[in-house]
Amino acid sequence: MIYNISSDENPMIKHIKQLARRKYRLEYGEYMVEGVRIIRDGLENNSSIKSIVFSERLYNTSGGEGLLQDLLEKNIKIYQVPESIFLKLSDTQNPQGIIGIFSCKAYDLDAILNCEKSLFLILDRIQDPGNLGTIIRSADAAGFDAVLLTKGCVDLYNLKTIRSTMGSIFHFPIIHVGKTKDVIQHLKAETIKIVSTSLETNKYYDEVDYKGRTAFVIGNEGHGVLKEVLDLSDELVKIPMKGKAESLNAAIAASIMMYEAVRQRRNQKI
């Protein structure tokens, strides 16, 4: 059933506006997603969709009407609003006319650690939403077990982050773990090798064995991995820089590291 909303003073509209702020996303355990493709991804991955808000524009968007019909069949609460109200809620330059409210999903780190050949990515204070989303997408594609977000990372439910994951956010384990130092000590106690990126080493990333249980640490875009984390690491590695560029984008560096592990394990039965 579709409910009509005509006023931006409606409680649902106020609620969606609140979800634009991290404070309220944490308070309600919900986040906002915008666009036909990514909401379709959420639906197909059985994510918990709390409600949908759409405008007339959706009917003129490719795949929009079909998505709306599929959502109606799932008995999800759906609200239609005037275009003027929808534009106040939208975060994109070219809105497609649909916004979804999803429940945040929680994963149990200790349960995931049970995998014999675990591969993890620890993100140490990553700040750029696009980097975070791209790293999550790459980790999903590379077959990693989880991405661990430490204290100080950009908000996972930032709309730019969500878009950059290209749907991975709906099915790939992403876990908030607190301080980087604490999670590393926890993983080391589980006999997981900690490999951090650092310019202060002579060892290259492809000179280390990643066939066993391994966690890569990717540091903050401007400052790299914390010294206390480097001191706890089992291996420090770097990616060779042959040109004049001083550094790589964090998402590119993470992808290079992850796919070296994939290369080494290619002929193994994991």
Score class of each variant (00 low, 15 high):
residue 41 D to Y: 02
residue 15 H to Q: 08
residue 130 G to I: 11
residue 34 E to G: 14
residue 19 L to H: 11
residue 43 L to A: 03
residue 83 E to Y: 00
residue 55 S to F: 14
residue 113 L to A: 02
residue 110 D to Q: 12
residue 69 Q to I: 11
residue 113 L to F: 01
residue 73 E to T: 10
residue 21 R to S: 11
residue 48 S to I: 02
residue 118 S to V: 00
residue 121 L to Q: 09
residue 107 Y to H: 00
residue 61 T to Y: 06
residue 23 K to I: 09
residue 18 Q to Y: 02
residue 125 R to S: 12
residue 139 A to H: 02
residue 80 Q to P: 00
residue 130 G to Y: 12
residue 112 I to C: 07
residue 149 L to K: 12
residue 26 L to A: 07
residue 85 I to C: 08
residue 52 I to N: 10
residue 47 S to F: 10
residue 74 K to T: 02
residue 53 V to Y: 14
residue 77 K to F: 02
residue 32 M to Y: 13
residue 94 N to H: 14
residue 143 G to Q: 01
residue 32 M to L: 15
residue 22 R to M: 07
residue 32 M to V: 15
residue 34 E to Y: 10
residue 55 S to T: 15
residue 92 T to W: 10
residue 74 K to F: 08
residue 83 E to D: 05
residue 94 N to V: 15
residue 33 V to P: 02
residue 140 D to M: 03
residue 120 F to I: 02
residue 109 L to E: 00
residue 82 P to W: 00
residue 80 Q to W: 00
residue 28 Y to G: 13
residue 148 L to Q: 04
residue 58 L to G: 12
residue 127 Q to P: 04
residue 111 A to E: 05
residue 122 I to P: 00
residue 35 G to V: 14
residue 63 G to D: 10
residue 144 F to T: 06
residue 24 Y to H: 09
residue 25 R to V: 05
residue 118 S to A: 02
residue 42 G to S: 05
residue 18 Q to R: 11
residue 76 I to C: 03
residue 47 S to Y: 09
residue 50 K to V: 06
residue 50 K to G: 01
residue 53 V to R: 10
residue 79 Y to L: 05
residue 56 E to S: 14
residue 105 K to D: 04
residue 63 G to Q: 08
residue 139 A to W: 02
residue 21 R to T: 06
residue 102 F to I: 14
residue 80 Q to E: 05
